[in-house]
Nucleic acid binder design. Structure first.
Lengths: 190, 190
DNA sequence: GTCTATAACTCGATAGAC
DNA sequence: GTCTATCGAGTTATAGAC
């Protein structure tokens, strides 16, 4: 499974070879098929595992009883931390969802959906009370998620354009753990 | 070329088949090879064309003499507009850069790089003068690009979670053309 | 469980007729 | 230029010995 994770995450479903995975695991193709039956099943396991590591976690933060600003700080800080440890997951997941939307909805979408509903209600409530500037809650959530995830999807491009080595990129992401929340809060605070 | 564009953009290099492209174009594989020699050359043309539509354009806006806030408004509004017309480009490009970084730098990186240098200097200057709140210019640029591009990379996920059909998603993006700049400017204005 | 050998199939690419 | 037919490499998957 560790070998499959590594190969699928970096090469995607279409680009990965069972031989690559077998080599990575130090076994041969036949044994790999013996364990996992076929490529589709193995891929499905890796994919579901990748989603499972993020969605329930995000739901917990969204549905937590934290005050708005603390919730935003917690989400961005911990989400970016999670992505620093799993930088290939976003591109992998987004890719496969885009390439096979029907299959994804049919087979992978198992009631464990991300539900930003609680956060949307919280935002609407605070706007109503006049505590923060008016903004479409959906736009704010898209902004927050974008700023957390995109740097990892665009990592090679960012490193190239800004001339950063891996250590420098890592430092920039470390900085983002607090910067992103600050950026959002500055924008909506009255 | 139109057929190749369509197939490569949606399926990627590894997932695309010459047969798919031939079918899409209404010809056969042999003729496709006759025109473009091989898959790699055809892919290269599509890829370079995809990059060429965005990078020189971004450079022009970055290097334009516009005042800071107008520059941000122009960039976000027009970039999102461009992406609404070419929604598959970002995931396609980011994917191939991630999968083959060496090949990309060697063959595709032809001196036509995006150069946010002018915008970085402008931000540093305005911060020094005390006209906007202090912020790392690199983080701000990453934030801006993230909020423009990510919604298109994550489109199927967003539509699923927020229960939006294509028309509703389009409307949300139309709204973003002004919302994103407003969000940024609120955050850095003193 | 683990291996070698190979079947069955897909896909890029070419040969050669028209 | 355009087609049919086919080659040859690479890939998933299985058969069968140990």
């Amino acid at each position: 499974m560790a070998a499959a994770r590594k190969v699928f995450l970096t090469k995607g479903m279409a680009g990965a070879r069972m031989q690559d995975i077998a080599d990575e695991a130090g076994i041969n193709k036949a044994l790999l098929h013996y364990y996992f039956r076929n490529k589709d099943k193995l891929f499905g396991m890796v994919f579901r595992e990748a989603m499972a590591g993020f969605i329930p976690w995000a739901n917990n933060v969204f549905a937590s009883g934290l005050p708005l600003f603390e919730k935003i700080e917690t989400f961005t800080r911990e989400y970016i931390g999670l992505l620093m440890d799993n930088p290939y997951i976003p591109l992998f997941v987004l890719n496969e969802i885009n390439r096979q939307p029907e299959k994804f909805i049919r087979k992978m979408w198992d009631g464990n959906q991300p539900t930003p509903g609680a956060l949307i209600q919280q935002l609407e409530s605070e706007i109503k009370k006049g505590l923060i500037k008016p903004i479409d809650p959906r736009q704010l959530i898209i902004n927050m998620i974008s700023m957390c995830i995109f740097p990892f999807v665009g990592k090679p491009m960012i490193q190239l354009v800004m001339k950063l080595n891996d250590a420098q990129f890592r430092q920039l992401m470390e900085q983002r753990k607090t910067e992103v929340a600050g950026f959002i809060i500055h924008s909506i605070r009255k």
